[in-house]
Simulated scan of single mutants.
Amino acid sequence: MTTAQGTGVTLTEAAAAKAKALLDQEGATDLALRISVAPGGCAGLRYQLYFDDRSLDGDVSEVFGGVKLVVDRQSVPYLMGATIDFADTIEQQGFTIDNPNATGSCACGDSFN
């Protein structure tokens, strides 16, 4: 596991491998995995994790396992120390975000504060 110095976010090997597999499947070479924080949800803030071809002013990026991870400058303070992982178990499948900055979350786990 490698921590990105610029973004403050860690992308685990499992998450990087899954993101790379999805990008390779689409044949997309110009996309980055973007994580951001936006207002929303019952707890106040919601994560957005998606592939993006845009480059925004102030973006911070790091490369993990051939995948470019991008964080916009407004989201960096909210995501400092966060870990993005990929779970593939009976109980859970998909990308997960463990964020030490989140002081609480809603009952459904869709948003945080």
Rank of each mutant, 00 (worst) to 15 (best):
M1Y: 11
M1L: 08
M1H: 14
A4G: 15
A4S: 15
G6L: 07
T7E: 11
G8A: 03
V9F: 08
V9K: 03
T12W: 09
E13K: 10
A14G: 13
A14W: 04
A15Q: 10
A16Q: 06
A16Y: 06
A16W: 04
A17M: 13
K18H: 13
K20L: 11
K20C: 07
A21P: 03
L22T: 09
L23M: 15
L23S: 14
L23R: 14
D24T: 06
Q25Y: 14
Q25L: 13
E26K: 13
A28W: 12
A28D: 12
A28K: 13
T29S: 15
L31P: 02
L31Y: 12
L31G: 07
A32V: 02
L33N: 05
L33P: 11
R34P: 03
I35M: 09
S36F: 09
V37T: 09
P39S: 09
P39I: 02
P39W: 03
G40Y: 02
G40M: 00
G41L: 02
C42V: 10
C42L: 12
C42D: 15
F51T: 12
D52Y: 02
R54A: 12
R54V: 02
S55E: 15
S55P: 08
S61E: 08
S61H: 10
S61P: 05
E62Y: 02
E62P: 02
G65F: 02
K68I: 01
L69F: 03
L69G: 10
L69I: 04
L69A: 09
V70E: 08
S75A: 07
S75D: 11
V76A: 11
Y78W: 15
M80R: 12
G81W: 02
A82Q: 00
D85T: 00
A87F: 00
A87Q: 05
A87S: 01
D88E: 11
T89Q: 13
I90C: 11
I90P: 14
Q92T: 12
Q92P: 03
G94E: 01
G94N: 06
T96L: 09
D98K: 14
D98I: 13
N99E: 04
P100S: 12
P100G: 13
N101M: 10
N101R: 14
T103K: 15
T103D: 15
C106H: 00
A107H: 05
A107K: 04
C108R: 01
